[in-house]
Design a protein around this nucleic acid. Structure first.
Length: 347
DNA sequence: TAAACGTGGGG
DNA sequence: TCCCCAAGTTT
């Protein structure tokens, strides 16, 4: 039986609201259109949307689907082209996992797994994304819980324990209102409600189709939920990037490993990291000059103040790609290094 | 379990 | 300006 009689028709209420208020999004099939969603586009959009706003994703989704219309197209692309196309979107492990997943799916004939369990085995697909794809692309009932749903459910049921400790309780509550039919529409309706009505700050309860069943609204604490455990302060690190030029070309390197910006093109640097500032030592002996100004950049877990030093060399002795300076915007630099390049070229 | 992992926009 | 936050996953 449901948690409460009052909440019984939350799904019906929400679906009716969605039929009239669904956002139009490039990766979305309109409710009631009868079109079958393309699992490739659902998957691609869901990965891009992980911790990333709809506004930021739109242009990337268009670019990717135009360059690679099918999962086989993406699977056969060069890694560097995919990473370069992802540049600026952040969380670059997503792009590396995207390539790996595309190749796995292509190897299976281009057919995506159609269950949560099957999807969950692809790299870069976790609890949320597997549920979302199973529901949206394949119509399977799945409890889809993202940050929007956490917020809606915490308020609807007045779950006051702070996140992330309340995740299990929130998921259990979400389960009680998840319908067997129209699972994909329901998931997207919850996310649209969270994104447009049940917003983090200043929820617009007067427009909410569930307002009369929302216990947090009844007690006036909706805007205070969900509570969250306080975050740690971010340390500030400093570092240096090096702009090494030769005959109108600048030296770019490929970042190794699996950590920060791994796999991405970058300027050489002095080894700065989240743990420690850089040592300031340039990668080669030359007549260096410091570029005026500093690049401030906020990562999730630390802040970086990046200085830029530049030099002109007569021989291309260093390891890396010599990239035409006047085409630096096509290099697919992560935002940090794009900012550094901009600083150099502004002087 | 907690930390690592990007970025841009809004209040 | 600064802090919070966004369709989370991996280790």
């Amino acid at each position: 039986m449901k948690a409460s009689d009052k909440i019984d028709d939350a799904a019906g209420r929400l679906l009716a609201w969605y039929d009239g208020h669904a956002r139009t999004l490039p990766w979305r099939v309109p409710p009631g259109s009868g079109q079958a969603p393309d699992p490739y586009r659902v998957w691609l959009s869901e990965v891009m949307l992980q911790q990333t706003t709809v506004a930021a994703v739109k242009s990337y989704f268009e670019k990717f689907t135009q360059s690679w219309p099918t999962v086989e197209d993406l699977a056969s692309a060069d890694d560097a082209d995919v990473l370069s196309a992802w540049a600026g979107l952040g969380y670059y492990a997503r792009a590396r996992n995207l390539i790996a997943s595309a190749r796995e799916v292509a190897a299976r004939g281009g057919i995506f797994p159609d269950t949560e369990e099957g999807l969950r085995e692809l790299p870069g697909i976790g609890a949320y994304t597997s549920a979302a794809i199973a529901a949206i692309a394949f119509g399977r009932r799945a409890v889809v819980v993202d940050a929007n749903v956490e917020r809606v459910i915490a308020r609807l049921f007045s779950i006051t324990e702070p996140l992330p400790g309340s995740k299990d309780a929130i998921r259990a509550a979400a389960d009680t209102i998840t319908p067997d039919e129209r699972a994909g529409d329901f998931a997207q309706a919850m996310m649209d409600l969270g994104a447009t009505i049940c917003t983090s700050r200043d929820p617009r309860c007067l427009l909410c189709p569930l307002s009369d069943m929302c216990t947090a609204r009844q007690t006036g604490i909706a805007a205070d939920l969900p509570r969250k455990t306080p975050k740690k302060a971010r340390p500030v690190r400093s570092g240096t990037a090096f702009w090494i030029e030769n005959d109108g070309h600048v030296l770019l390197v490929k970042r190794e490993g699996k950590g920060m910006l791994a796999g991405m093109r970058a300027l050489p640097d002095d080894g700065w990291s989240a743990r420690a500032s850089g040592n300031g030592e340039p990668p080669l002996a030359a007549e260096w000059s410091r570029v005026d100004g500093v690049v401030g950049h906020g990562f999730t877990h630390f802040l970086l103040e990046l200085s830029v030093h530049r030099c002109e060399v007569s021989d291309r002795v260093a390891e890396g790609e010599w990239w035409p300076v006047d085409r630096i915007e096509e290099a697919g630099l992560p935002t940090l290094f794009a900012k550094a390049a901009k600083l150099v070229l502004a002087t």
